[in-house]
Computed example of a mutant assay.
Amino acid sequence: MIFEVWAPRATSIELSLPDSRRPLRRRDNGWWSVEAPEAGHGTDYRYFVDGEGPYPDPRSRRQPEGIFGPSRVYDHARFTWSDHEWKGRDLRGSIIYELHVGAFTAEGTFTAALDRLDHLVELGVDFVELMPVAPVPGGRNWGYDGVDLYAVNETYGGPDGLKELVDGCHRAGLGVILDVVYNHLGPSGNFLHPFGPYFAGYAGSFWGEAVNLDGPDSDEVRRYFIDNAVQWLRDYHIDGLRLDAVHALHDRRAVHLLAELAAEVDALACSVGRPLTLIAESDLNDPRMITPLEAGASA
């Protein structure tokens, strides 16, 4: 398989596998890559940046040993879905149940939550909104200081566990919304700094350092978050995303990140043939947040 990582200001990148280390070759636009034929689904790996590390992959799909452990190759195609008849549902007028995986059951896992879906259906719930599931320091917390944003908290059940829960929700007629945090990352276990200018260099809010959405090299930073959103909707069959505190997204470019993201999600909805929804939490009282792009919204 081919390993790829974005590190525009690095002078050397090395891939660390269980039995070997090998250098990556620099490509265009700050990307590096190397082929490792012996690696595949389940292989653990890390990166060394300019001799420092090891660090997890910024786009790690799995962190089986937590935020300070190695990344693990995860092949989305290996999961077998059973929600082929799911056509999605309209969010408008729906009842949303906000669910913290760690607190919803005594076990605090995706698997345990499956056993209580009938209860939610009986309550009249239409959508389950999962609080953030990205890896965090320790076993459980609210989820708003997550890191390794492409991975799923192993304490809850990892990527397969999340897929099983979404699959079960769809079989029960429930849509699924995922709470995601793109305005900052948690301070502990955040290893994006060595790879590139993911952050703007100033405090964006009292939660943490602002994400670099409009500075030098921000194209790939924006891509990092947009690709992350697309992953949840495409690879995990999530029906919508609740975007945390979008007023803390500092973006002065002509096309705001939210507008760019909305356009990509609309295109994906057409591709998968079901409605996909973005919900923005904002304290700006700005009507552009709910104005369709075709009506002139810039954000």
Rank of each mutant, 00 (worst) to 15 (best):
S205Y: 02
S33F: 05
L293P: 01
A297S: 15
K163G: 03
D50E: 13
V49Q: 01
P197S: 09
L284I: 07
E38W: 07
E85I: 11
N29V: 09
N183D: 15
L293I: 09
P194E: 05
P132A: 10
F199P: 00
Y198L: 03
P135N: 06
P18Q: 07
D115Y: 11
M1E: 05
E281M: 07
V133E: 00
M289R: 06
E107F: 07
E220H: 14
C169Q: 02
E264Y: 05
E107Q: 15
R253T: 15
R62T: 04
L24A: 05
V73A: 10
I67T: 03
R9N: 12
D266K: 15
P292K: 10
G42D: 09
P56T: 03
A295V: 08
I226D: 03
W142N: 14
S218M: 10
L249E: 02
I177A: 02
G102Y: 00
F68G: 00
R21I: 09
R252F: 13
A295W: 12
I2C: 07
R72C: 06
H256T: 12
Y97K: 11
G161E: 01
S298M: 10
L278V: 09
T291G: 09
H247I: 05
F104R: 10
S94A: 15
E154N: 08
W207S: 09
W31Q: 00
K87S: 13
A134N: 01
I96H: 03
P137L: 15
L241C: 08
K87D: 08
I67R: 00
G161L: 00
F3E: 00
L185G: 02
I279T: 08
V125Q: 02
E220W: 08
R9T: 13
A203G: 13
P18E: 07
D90Q: 09
